[in-house]
Design a protein around this nucleic acid. Structure first.
Lengths: 129, 129
DNA sequence: ATAATATATGAGCATGTGTTCATGTGTTAT
DNA sequence: ATAACACATGAACACATGCTCATATATTAT
């Protein structure tokens, strides 16, 4: 995040004269430049989207307690094997869970220590509200 | 999050004795009961869903740096006023941002200190991957 | 070999989401 | 009063999402 003075031009696509913007133009430009790169922004949104479903939240809560095979997740959540498998694939593609195969059963567990922290922070947010 | 001692029968992991699940039944029941209540699960998912969109992530990044009026958010994100207003309402309903009215302009800012922490954690998750 | 078990996956469908467009509401200026 | 400005919002549309159903793959048992 560079903090230098930037004098780039801001396109006034809004058709306004620019005087009605409450913050000075340079400030807005700087806010724009302080963004993380766009790919990271998209990655963050995809990460949150992966956590943004009740079924997946419940799966993560279960796996926070113990590594589980697919069948056991089905029992804990009381859902069909297909539905659970689809969601586990989603979480796997997002690198939130990992799998370990033993014979014909596949065990799933959390792939990231940060998820627990994120959950804790979010619970605090909900309490405060 | 309570990490109760889940001591149960010795795990006959992948013990495919022709029975249903690999983990003992009582363990699964306990995992089920250790869940936060369902309404909280849903609230968490809704919170993450609110963060799970690139536009809303960018809005939050902007507001992390400075309180902004709607028009300025439009400039920073290069989006229409309607699209921005819709997303701001979404974030307001989720208690992620709050507004402050001054004359005819409305200033938005983050309503929660935890959001910054959640973002930091998520960024770390993405780096590690 | 066949059968049984455990998981994965593509197709289809109902529902949800994010944007645009048009319009509404509230405030300030003339 | 009228006009301009800043923001909010409902409708509509294209697209995404989460489930079910049927089926495929992989491993183990007989």
């Amino acid at each position: 995040m560079t903090q230098e003075a930037l004098r780039e031009d801001v396109t006034d696509e809004c058709g306004h004269d620019g005087a009605d913007s409450s913050a000075p133009r340079d400030t807005l430009v700087q806010i724009k430049e302080n963004f993380v790169d766009e790919s990271t922004t998209i990655d963050m949104a995809e990460m949150f989207k992966a956590l943004g479903d009740p079924t997946r939240v419940r799966i993560i809560y279960a796996l926070l307690q113990k590594e589980l095979c697919v069948h056991d997740v089905c029992i804990v959540l009381d859902m069909t094997q297909s539905a659970v498998s689809h969601q586990l694939r989603y979480l796997r593609n997002t690198r939130i869970v990992k799998r370990r195969k033993v014979g014909k059963t596949v065990f799933y567990s959390l792939d990231d220590r940060h998820v627990e922290e994120i959950f804790a922070q979010t619970l605090q947010h909900l309490k405060h509200g």
